[in-house]
Computed example of a mutant assay.
Amino acid sequence: MNTSATHNQRIAKMTFALVYPLYLAKVEKKGRTKEELHQVIEWLTGFDANKLQDLIKEKVTFELFFQQATLNPNAHLITGVICGYRIEDIENTLTQQVRYLDKLVDELAKGRKMEKILRGL
């Protein structure tokens, strides 16, 4: 799926610090914990809680966030629809990576077992 250049640019320039509190509120509202959110983010990106806090303080964009990340080799197993887009069909790499993160947060909020979210560890 080809997203517009404007859409991709908007995602690239969005800061992780802006979105992180929304992720946290979403999962906590559904009874999940900050630690579980951090576990999901670390699985996808390799960032531990301390590194996440540094990135939030630095107000890094998603573009820098994913440039610094070591994406999990099993990230390609994250499939499905998020925000109206089929993840596996997104052609822009950065947009796809952000949607991977969105999908993992959604699965966590929906009560999916951690083993399934992390694609069998």
Rank of each mutant, 00 (worst) to 15 (best):
E35F: 05
E115I: 13
N74A: 12
I78P: 02
I11H: 09
L101P: 03
A25V: 07
C83N: 15
I82A: 12
N8P: 04
M114R: 06
V81K: 08
Y100C: 01
Y100M: 03
P73I: 10
A17S: 15
A49M: 04
W43G: 05
M1T: 11
K34R: 13
M14T: 15
R86A: 12
L71G: 04
V98Q: 09
W43K: 08
D54I: 10
L55N: 05
L22W: 09
R10N: 13
A69M: 10
I41A: 05
T95S: 13
M1A: 13
G111I: 00
T70R: 14
M114D: 03
K26G: 09
L24V: 09
M1H: 10
N92D: 15
N74D: 13
I90Q: 00
T70H: 14
V27T: 08
K29Y: 12
K30W: 09
L94T: 00
D48E: 09
C83S: 13
D89Q: 14
Y23D: 02
F62V: 06
Q67D: 11
F47P: 04
D48I: 03
Y100T: 01
R32D: 04
G84D: 07
L101N: 00
E42G: 10
I11E: 08
M1C: 11
Y100G: 04
F62K: 04
D106F: 07
I41L: 13
A12F: 06
L121K: 15
L71I: 15
I78F: 03
L22R: 14
N72G: 02
N8H: 05
K59P: 08
Q67A: 07
I90F: 04
T79K: 14
L64T: 11
F62C: 10
G31T: 09
A49W: 02
L64A: 07
V81R: 06
H76W: 11
A75Q: 07
W43S: 12
L77C: 05
